[in-house]
Amino acid sequence: MSWALRVAGLGVIYGGGCDRCPERTGPAAGAADPGLDAVDASGPGASRVVCDRCGSVVAAWDVSFEVAPGESLGVIGESGSGKSTVLRTIAGDLTPWAGAAWLAALDGGATDLFTLDRAARRRLRAGDLGMVYQDPAEGLDLEISAGGNVIEPLTAAGWRHFVRMRSRAAELLGRTEVPVDRMDDLVHTFSGGMRQRVQIAKALATSPGVVLLDEPTSGLDASVAAGVLDLIRELSEELGLATVVVSHDFQVMHMLARRVLVMHHGRVVEEGLTDQLLEDPQHPYSQRLVAAAR
């Protein structure tokens, strides 16, 4: 098996949904509709995420990709393009409408994650799947210590030895460059960059094979962000992690991801090697995105 994580046909719809949602939404929804004349079918309003038949929001549709062990896949797109939705659905925070996802580490890739019950999904998060959120307050409890946050997935995975958990937390925090003498301080006393490092330590606690990163550096200033990105790159190389990193920032993609998906209105509009995509974007939306970043 060449992949660590495989996603096929992932779709997330908010609202009732109808069987025509997929064709009535997306970047080409207006243009594809033969019932509209040329004026209606063009312009900013033609491309949409709200189904005009049933009013449901199609946050993501037909998203498929594979990530190999040690590989890093980027997902880029503007706000609201559905990239975080895809990540959170894989992580188990959101419920998918359609599609399937497999982890190589789970039953040798035979079991679709989306068929698992909530308790099994949660066990996965304390095992083979780590997640780093944009806002540390979402991934961490700011009112407990850094060490306490890092040991949470360990306790969920059945660790019951205080000294062993503590030394594991110290090891992880040391690796993510959080001063170990501050491991007993409450996380809300930490700076943004340090909080993000604690989150990374927590995501790595149970040595997962796959780590999902949702805008890991968006709230940080440039120099701190660069440090965190370096750390993520080093750790993924060192540990052979398969990572999926979501960002709207080409700098992040450039540093972390070798391969990139471009998302727009909930659809993947282009996929390619990062360098290639930055130099020679094919899809009109990718071209606009790259032009805007320059």
Partner: peptide, 22 residues
């Protein structure tokens, strides 16, 4: 209720850990 239903007592253990640390 959800935590009880899923037998998810991780945060309970974290609070015991915090108690010991502090």
């Amino acid at each position: 209720r959800q935590l009880h239903a899923e037998g998810d007592y991780a945060r309970m253990w974290v609070s015991l850990y915090e108690d010991l640390v502090r």
